[in-house]
Simulated assay, not measured.
Amino acid sequence: MSEAVKFGSKAAADRAREEHADLVCPVDDDKRMRTVHFVSDAPGSVLDQLRAQADEGTADRADDRPGQIPLTDAEKERISFSRNGVNVLWARSIKGLAQRHGVSDWTAYVDPTLTVDEHREVMENAGQEGGGARDDGDQLDAAREADAAAVEQAEGCNHARGHCEHGDPDACEYLTEACGYSADEVADLLAEPEPASDDGPTDTEADPLSPPAKLEGAQVGAYLRSVRGYLNATDAAAEHIKKLREALEHANDAARAINGIRSDASLDPIHFRKLEQANADLTDLMRMVASTCEECHADHSDHGHDTTAGNREDVREVAVDGASSTPVGTSDETDRAAADADT
């Protein structure tokens, strides 16, 4: 697990990331946050120093923290709460900053795209200007309506994009008519994504699992959550597959022993329906993997068994044409078992 250090400001967190870039955890750290995640084997002395700096910064920040002052009904009417992160507590904190700097017409300086911290400088400058209004009521109402319309438009376009990617023609039409998408952009959404090439990055390397520099804003968080989900899921799959292999080997050995004993006693063999159901679940699982795979290759190079012509095969080919059609092929034991089933 990584070591988390929460700084008093985003600027302090960014300085720590820059000064100790080699110790920042590429998987857990989110550059948008004041909490910095360092690798688990970071030197203890460095972590102690960073925590001391963070504690000092947090104390300084507490002394400069704005109070939250209740809003009047008129002030609530003049603030657009349609954006994410814009809420009553956010506005009350900004009002506290405004009063500290002597800004009476503070709602005229509110910017819904800024955080409370970012409003510190805004209100400080407004106080130096005298705190006068920058917009009259009609302008504020128009701005609020335009902002709400923009948010609604963006949400509608994002929703339509998701449906268009899954082949909904009405959603694709909405993107072109209401969201400004070109025909080529819609075609790109409908196109199947290109599979990863063998020359591309792999998930065993650190860099591809770190947020690429091209990602911005919410994409970074979504990417990190997906990486964590992928790593957790593949680790769990490996553990369950190992247990499943052992359980099936034991079940078949036990079933074979049962029928061997019954045969020696001149009793009819048992039809093992529970094992039959397990076999059905396994073959259905194989079909599911073939139909939904993002990575459709299976690499047997570490499995220690012989292959027919190569170590890699396509799980879709296995499901459709059978394992014997792939470079990996089947074992002599499997071939003999299949021949026995035909007789």
Score class of each variant (00 low, 15 high):
D22A: 15
Q49G: 15
P112T: 03
G102F: 03
P112E: 05
I79T: 08
F38P: 04
L71N: 03
K76S: 11
D28S: 13
V36S: 00
D14I: 06
F81Y: 14
S80T: 15
S82F: 09
L47V: 10
G102I: 05
E19N: 14
V116N: 06
E56Y: 03
P70E: 12
A21Y: 15
V122G: 01
A54S: 09
R92H: 04
T113P: 00
D64Y: 04
T113R: 11
L89R: 15
T107Y: 04
E75K: 02
P66F: 01
Q53Y: 00
V27K: 14
S104F: 01
H20G: 07
A13C: 09
G85T: 14
I94S: 01
N87F: 04
M33N: 12
S93V: 11
R61F: 10
R65S: 11
A54P: 08
A52Q: 09
V36K: 00
R100V: 01
R120G: 03
S82I: 06
A42D: 03
R78L: 04
V36E: 00
Y109D: 06
R92L: 06
R120V: 15
A59R: 12
D28V: 10
A42S: 09
L97Y: 03
V24G: 15
H101P: 01
P66S: 06
R61D: 13
V110G: 04
E18Q: 14
D64C: 01
Q68V: 14
H119Q: 08
I79R: 00
S40G: 09
H119G: 06
R34C: 15
R51A: 05
W90R: 05
N87T: 07
T107G: 08
E18C: 00
I79K: 00
D111A: 12
P112D: 09
V46C: 04
R61T: 15
G57F: 02
S45R: 08
W90A: 03
Q68Y: 07
E77H: 11
L71G: 01
V110N: 04
D48E: 13
D28W: 13
L71Q: 03
A59M: 11
R61N: 11
R120K: 11
V27G: 13
D29Q: 07
M33F: 13
V39C: 08
H20C: 05
L89M: 12
G96S: 08
E56W: 05
G67D: 10
A74K: 11
R120M: 11
S82C: 11
R32H: 13
A13D: 05
T115A: 07
F38Q: 05
D111G: 08
C25P: 10
L97D: 01
F81N: 03
T58G: 08
S93K: 13
P112N: 11
H20S: 07
M123P: 05
G67E: 12
P70H: 05
D63P: 00
